[in-house]
Design a protein around this nucleic acid. Sequence first.
DNA 1: CCATATTTGGACAGTACATCCAGGCTAGAC
DNA 2: GTCTAGCCTGGATGTACTGTCCAAATATGG
Lengths: 217, 217
Amino acid sequence: MGNVEEGPDSRVRMWSPVCRAVALLLGPYAEVVLHDPETDRVLEIWNPMTSRGPGDPSLLGELDELDPSAQDVYGPYEKLLADGRRLSSVSAVLRDARGEPSAVLCINLDRTPLEQAAAVLSAFGAPTVQGPEPLFEQDWSERIQHVIGTYVRETGRPIERMTRQDRLAVLGRLDEARVFAVRRATPVVAGALRVSRSTVYGLLTELRAPSAKDRQP
Amino acid sequence: MGNVEEGPDSRVRMWSPVCRAVALLLGPYAEVVLHDPETDRVLEIWNPMTSRGPGDPSLLGELDELDPSAQDVYGPYEKLLADGRRLSSVSAVLRDARGEPSAVLCINLDRTPLEQAAAVLSAFGAPTVQGPEPLFEQDWSERIQHVIGTYVRETGRPIERMTRQDRLAVLGRLDEARVFAVRRATPVVAGALRVSRSTVYGLLTELRAPSAKDRQP
DNA sequence: CCATATTTGGACAGTACATCCAGGCTAGAC
DNA sequence: GTCTAGCCTGGATGTACTGTCCAAATATGG
């Protein structure tokens, strides 16, 4: 973490915790830059996506001329890197205790991975991530339904035409999914399989103790 | 307390551009909170994901006692909301010009949409970007340890020095994480908290029935 | 030091879990 | 059709777990 011998700029000292926090949160997908609006140069940079470093020119442009209702925050707007990566960027004017602008913070988020994922998803007709899609449910009863539903879809056999082997297979999956570790799960599974609790318990013990059976060759 | 002129807290004035920038960039998926470490209350909040507001208690605890090598930035660590959303969180201690801690910034990023997308993609055999991240926790005892560990790290208070309020907070989180829906969880939690089973049940009932509490002396 | 708040271990009642069994049902063999 | 064998069922039963209560022990705070 060595800094230059001259000691860090007081502005860097003040704002770096925020910058490092954002850089940590967004991992390798975000670049955080602290600019000096006076000299129009980079003060410090975290997770650099290009080869810029402290002291390089900022190429910031005139933020002063932007909409004053934004109250020192600009964006998000889009940038395009030379290699084709798309960035979402925001900027904020940081002021000292006297209210004078002392630095400009820029956060550049690489949207490319997200957009690729979104493209794959929409190609398969998956819903765009807007409303919460309960793909994997926190609720264990939904998980039960999900496991059983998957099995029915795989075998094309509805619940009421299931054979003993089917029930064993489904219960095996449910057991692997640790469904029976939650309270009151067994009666729910029995109901979902249209079977009595006794049957479920019987099949489960048979499933969990295959040792005594194949012991005799 | 505040030695400020009228209007918003000077700290809010100073840090709000950063906060608003992050909140804008990350859209509805990130919550940005500014805490007052003195009073342990929320100073301001952007994109709130729960119903917290300015003036509410932070439940932050003392960050001072944490590992000094972290240099005022903590995390990312994981939080779990009641509805199952998983958050990645970072915290940063913000210091004034004299180097004194003046505020604590927390950014909470909702990872759920990303994880859902990742689940869909991996179901179609698409290459997963990152390594073996436990998508859903199978071992609930790990989850208990994780929730407690997170709290300890957040507050810098080891289990044996916890106050009643700490225990209440931890049990609240565990309850939100639906930990007590699994069999045998309560004794395990009691053991992990170095507390008797009775205490856990007592605190839990107190936690779950704040409605008809202080009506009668 | 006392007063109050909190935790504790243990006893207890109430559930839920798991097993067992006798009888009923179904399917296939004869 | 009848028989047999295997499976399922409902209920009875014993065990394990859950949650509550309370007096005593202990911590907390003035």
